[in-house]
Nucleic acid binder design. Structure first.
Lengths: 224, 224
DNA sequence: ATCGGTACATTTACGGCGTATACGTACACA
DNA sequence: TGTGTACGTATACGCCGTAAATGTACCGAT
């Protein structure tokens, strides 16, 4: 029916994923629907399927995109790889931390997919990460098993810290909601310690704490 | 139209949540729908709404349930609280670890909600956790700020480690899928380190590694 | 000039979903 | 006998993901 508008650029996987990421950053994961996504690109929903293998494919693309962002930062770093393995791990961890903080809504995607997707099915940009870390560790003379243990600890820490640190612990929503007021009241009554430390909790962590935890883990594993 | 069957027990929040958790454990989070849930309870979908404030309410209930499970383990422990703060934190961490491992599919729920739900809105069973840890730390003479930092590191580690450790890294899906075979091939070509260490990666972590990472973090924070 | 082929996008349709609203049914207690 | 209250149902709406069939425009070969 409607004739194709020749003025607009053609659709592409990249354009779709960019729009999707923007949408998720703006409105959250739940808000992403193929139909709205298509609408934003001024296209009919089914057009997306030529490039994106369904919604699952879009999700996969989002993960890919975010990891690629981290690698871009790492690859572009002027000082290049740090001299020590520890320095390099700091650099990688920090890059991941920052990327995750700038796309908080994709986190559930990561936690869901780590359980599900087998190694050989993960996007290249995701696989580059362990390759990078493991290679660096082994180059430093770390033995195989310790290298793997270190990578596991590294990724657990990065992921966990980002999740925990991601939100303000004490928001200020519509105070009129009775459920909220009740919750607050209960909080003060039944959880005195939580109430007392709430201001400190609310401050959130920071890169410094992220790094010192990482260091503690590396120390524990005997990484130089 | 259909007369009520007087033989069956009445619906309840508990019964709904139990069925929902069973369903999620069995088929994953995505598979949970109000309609199927109702079907399993031999009830019309809308009946659930009397007890569960919508699907979001069911999700919240699931989180609540899983945390309650952990607290049940902790409260029932015959030896009671451990003498040292560190021992107690081990005990709590291990309980959480085990509960999470036995309900892997709810993890995305946790990561999603931590970002979203303000403190005063969280279920009691969730709030008991920080209260427990913080209280113990302060009783040991740990200062406020360090206590908070420790709790943050603790929860990040538990959450992150569980997520990373949760799945086998190398599954054996339908090998005939060309995409999978290609992935495998690419894996061998572009990620030599990953390929070489894959067997070790596949072994997964264990409680021992979980605990030693936790210890490393506690050491780093100067917890006795 | 015409003819296929191919790359791109749309149209239509189906079944499932969450849930607002209105309605029944059974029982307690007056 | 009547009336409120607790519990469950019926109906309906709008949104969702996507399979299958259908255009539409442009290509190089005839």
């Amino acid at each position: 029916m409607a004739a194709k508008d020749p003025a607009r650029q053609p659709l592409s996987r990249q354009r779709i994923l960019d729009a999707a990421l923007a949408m998720v950053d703006r409105e959250g994961l739940e808000a992403l629907s193929m139909r709205k996504l298509a609408g934003e690109l001024h296209v009919e929903p089914m057009s997306l399927y030529r490039y994106a293998d369904g919604k699952e494919g879009v999700f996969e693309g989002l993960v890919e995109l975010v990891f690629a962002e981290a690698h871009a930062v790492l690859d572009a770093d002027p000082e290049g790889e740090s001299p020590s393995a520890r320095g390099e791990i700091h650099r990688i961890g920090l890059a991941l931390y920052r990327v995750a903080v700038s796309h908080p809504h994709i986190l559930p995607l990561l936690t869901g997919r780590l359980i599900t997707v087998p190694l050989a099915r993960r996007p290249t940009s995701v696989l580059r990460l362990p390759e990078r870390v493991l290679t660096r560790l082994r180059a430093e003379g770390v033995d195989d098993r310790t290298a793997v243990d270190t990578y596991r600890a590294f990724s657990a820490w990065v992921l966990g810290y980002v999740i925990v640190d991601m939100r303000a612990v004490v928001d200020e929503p519509d105070e009129d909601d009775p459920a909220y007021r009740y919750g607050l009241h209960q909080l003060h009554r039944d959880f005195p310690m939580l109430r007392e430390l709430a201001p400190i909790l609310a401050e959130g962590g920071a890169e410094r704490q992220f790094l010192s935890g990482l260091d503690a883990l590396l120390d524990g594993l005997g990484i130089p």
